[in-house]
Design a protein around this nucleic acid. Structure first.
Length: 276
DNA sequence: AGGCAGGCTTTTA
DNA sequence: TAAAAGCCTGCC
């Protein structure tokens, strides 16, 4: 079906902003996008136009929400003032079309643990290995097979050899511990939703292998808490170099996480071009 | 108590 | 060889 979007988005900028690690690029503006036991092909035929190989019902019940199309990003962006905060303004203009996907909480928890101290290609490799070794085999509308992200039970059932084959390094124990906490019922992803940001963060940080940064990623990308602000090496550089007098978190609440994503992607792009 | 150095698996550039 | 969307432990 063809979807006419309420405002401009950019599939390319979304995937390059480093929030999802399983999309596969199939063309200049085309991607295979897995979510739970589904995989859809998205082709961006215009700034506010998407083609997807799914029914309208599936679009309305799954993908519309996944792409966060009910949120008004234009309204959020209007909080940014060109004169008061030119760096964020430029980041927002350059990254217009980035959205915070509503991804699966469990998948984001494990994936975010994997991200620590690694670069993006290495992250993708480990995640894909875990899916292939333990995830449920599914079939997309074109008849192509793919693997869903493994459930807590499926990871629990992986042998040490099997999990060790996912190139997780020292993070393997973290993933074992977190999986055990969820498998045993000590921690439930759905219970996290009811907590305040502060309580939610506290609960996540209590897990072995989860610090402030990983917790913020889970909250932003896995629980759609738009004020969560993952402070990684890049954001530290940005705040240090661009905001020597401090960053105005208060004036951007409750959208700090969205703007963080603009700055993160923008700065990495600048670094790639050698401009930072 | 709170802050900091050192170590950690493996891949990537 | 250093750095990579960090965290844990031990030490002070």
């Amino acid at each position: 079906m063809i979807v006419s979007l309420p405002e401009e988005i950019s599939l390319l900028k979304i995937v390059e902003s480093g929030q999802c690690f399983r999309w596969k690029r199939t063309g200049e503006n085309s991607f295979k996008v897995p979510f739970h036991d589904r995989m859809v092909r998205m082709n961006q035929s215009g700034p506010d136009m998407l083609e997807m190989n799914c029914t309208e019902d599936e679009y309305l019940s799954i993908w519309k929400n996944y792409l966060d199309l009910d949120m008004d990003y234009g309204k959020m962006n209007s909080r940014i003032h060109k004169r008061k905060d030119p760096f964020l303004w430029n980041a927002m203009k350059a990254q217009n079309g980035v959205r915070i996907l509503r991804q699966d909480t469990w998948e984001m928890l494990i994936t975010s643990i994997i991200t620590q101290n690694r670069n993006i290609p290495a992250i993708q490799k480990s995640v894909e290995l875990m899916c292939g070794k333990a995830g449920t085999k599914c079939t997309d509308p074109e008849g192509e097979e793919f693997y869903a992200f493994p459930s807590p039970e499926q990871i629990h059932n992986m042998t040490d050899d099997c999990l060790g084959g996912c190139k997780l390094g020292y993070r393997m124990k973290y993933i074992r511990d977190v999986t055990e906490a969820v498998f045993s019922g000590k921690l439930s992803m759905s219970d996290l939703q009811a907590l305040s940001d502060e309580e939610c963060c506290k609960k996540l940080v209590a897990l072995n292998g989860v610090g402030e940064k990983v917790a913020a990623c889970v909250m932003l990308f896995g629980l759609h808490r738009l004020n969560a602000f993952p402070m990684d090496v890049w954001m530290k550089r940005i705040l240090e170099n661009e905001y020597p007098d401090g960053y105005p978190f208060k004036s951007y609440s409750p959208y700090n996480g969205v703007f963080q994503q603009y700055m993160f992607a923008y700065y990495r792009e600048l670094a790639q071009k050698g401009q930072r």
